[in-house]
Design a protein around this nucleic acid. Structure first.
Lengths: 113, 113
DNA sequence: TTAACGTACAACCAAATGGTTGCACGTCGA
DNA sequence: TCGACGTGCAACCATTTGGTTGTACGTTAA
């Protein structure tokens, strides 16, 4: 249901790692409402263009953003489905807990009711 | 509301980074339903005790688990509130999007209705 | 047609990460 | 009481990460 069985652990590692950096979270939030070019983004941070470009690449590899070419520009937009997926994953941990508690109930309570 | 304003970016980095490792996610899931000792955990993975201990330390620093001493053992349990927090954070990204869309509506539509 | 722009990528570097082994020390059980 | 157990921590190592500068190359505008 949640786990589409064998969404590689590596992919999840990448997903969460991509979120583990303030600059990347900011890029992500920004690309949620706008569709900035990589240079647009680079202009907003106190680091080199190449550094920002690398952050964008990390987000892209994690599947959290998409790039679309427009002439010489690359326009960045957030992949909301993928972002949502990260949230679901965390909910999943909660659900594991609920499930097991339910199973425990099954053991402790008479079957019928 | 969500952002308790100045939950340090560093803390968020730590939170997501802690989640970005399969072994740690497994420890987390396991500690959600049981309260294993560090050795119990270590026995389940093909790495040294010290390595597992380090993973536990990472989770603890991120606030995702708590340890409780019981004689010579340290019993590990998940801090569900903190885990939930990570999920909320991701929802927050979604909400940013919704908010901005709403603001856009404010601009585009007559005020009253 | 050229200069400037936007991007990609390689080479390099310091610091952090994820693993190891070894040692110290308190606790428990025989 | 004493050996084994559970833990914490330091030292070490290889790899990854997050940053830099420099170069190359297609695109755009004057």
């Amino acid at each position: 249901m949640v786990a589409r069985r064998k969404e590689s652990e590596e992919a999840l590692n990448q997903l969460f790692r991509a979120l583990a950096d303030s600059t990347r979270r900011d890029i992500l939030a920004r690309s949620l409402t706008e569709t900035p070019s990589v240079s647009d983004l680079a202009a907003r941070y106190e680091m080199s263009f190449a550094a920002v470009q690398k952050h964008v690449a990390v987000l892209e590899r994690a599947g959290l953003i998409k790039k679309r070419a427009n002439g010489r520009e690359q326009l960045v937009s957030t992949n909301r489905a993928r972002l949502k997926r990260a949230g679901e994953l965390l909910d999943y941990f909660e659900s594991i807990w609920r499930q097991r508690m339910a199973q425990l109930d099954d053991v402790l309570l008479p079957k019928g009711k």
